[in-house]
């Protein structure tokens, strides 16, 4: 007798699988946050992670911000030119960079760099039994490995995005003054005239949230990887993909619910 695939059973299986994943992630999240706030703290690991997330991501984030700011100015110039409003270019560039593109693009770049690195490193530690060894040496892996990573990313992302905001705006300025013949001082003046503190601050808050998400996904996927080199590869891919999607979804949710003004 051949079995006929039952669509209802497939939907059920997929739903149960999804719910199990959400549950596992929730437990992981709770244990990670618990570890961030309970001693012992490993300051050496904390510092190393902050360097790796913050300092070593600077070139990547800076370059993307520079190009993004420049291309944004170029497009807005074309768009606003259609109704003779080219004078608004600096204002819109600042608005777009600080509120949206700064945090989102920087976080996506860091997700590609840092989530992947975390997943690969923790995944390798998992499959070579280093995480088990840590436990048998009476050291909680959540405190020793996970907490420093998540804390580092959550704290360093706002700093990175602040720098990326500045470089992005300067990218727009660079293009506008060299290619589009804007007056340098006038451009900078207009950039600042309509900028509100909240534009920058809301972007930095988002950056913190995205930093938390991207490190959580990197750690979760790596920590739970199995099955040798292939498993580590899968964990790395899943970390970057899930971090990127969650960052974009969270961005929409936070912007439309919290930052509506």
């Amino acid at each position: 007798m051949t079995t006929i695939p039952n669509p209802a059973a497939n939907i059920g299986r997929a739903t149960l699988g999804f719910l199990a994943d959400v549950g596992r992630l929730a437990v992981f999240l709770a244990r990670s946050v618990g570890a961030i706030f309970s001693p012992p703290f490993y300051f050496g690991n904390q510092l190393r992670q902050m360097l790796s997330v913050g300092y070593y991501s600077l070139p990547v984030v800076g370059l993307t911000a520079l190009f993004t700011g420049a291309v944004l100015a170029q497009q807005i110039y074309i768009g606003t030119g259609r109704f003779d409003a080219e004078s608004t270019v600096p204002t819109i560039v600042v608005f777009g960079i600080t509120r949206e593109l700064g945090p989102v693009i920087a976080s996506l770049m860091v997700a590609g760099r840092v989530s992947a690195a975390m997943a690969a490193e923790l995944g390798t530690m998992r499959v070579t039994e280093q995480i088990d060894a840590l436990t048998t040496l009476a050291t909680n892996p959540f405190r020793y490995l996970i907490a420093p990573r998540i804390l580092a990313a959550t704290l360093m992302m706002p700093l990175l995005v602040l720098i990326s905001d500045i470089i992005g705006v300067m990218g727009g300025w660079l293009l506008s003054t060299t290619v589009l013949n804007y007056n340098s001082i006038g451009y900078l003046q207009r950039s600042l005239d309509f900028m509100e503190t909240w534009d920058v601050v809301s972007g930095l808050i988002k950056a913190g949230i995205f930093g938390f998400i991207l490190s959580l996904m990197g750690c979760y996927q790596g920590f739970n990887s199995s099955g040798g080199a292939q498993g580590v590869g899968r964990a790395t891919t899943n970390a970057v993909v899930s971090a990127s999607i969650l960052i974009l979804a969270a961005n929409y949710a936070v912007t439309s619910i919290v930052f509506t003004d």
Binding site: T128, E129, D132, T136
Partner: peptide, 28 residues
């Protein structure tokens, strides 16, 4: 953790922490 301090385990592949030097592994 208190109970685990009474145990020592030699893992099959060694499971040495490759991000720290040998002496730090031994003294971990």
């Amino acid at each position: 953790e208190k109970m685990l301090r009474r145990f020592g385990m030699l893992f099959q592949g060694g499971a040495l922490f490759d991000s720290i030097r040998v002496w730090r592994n031994v003294a971990f």
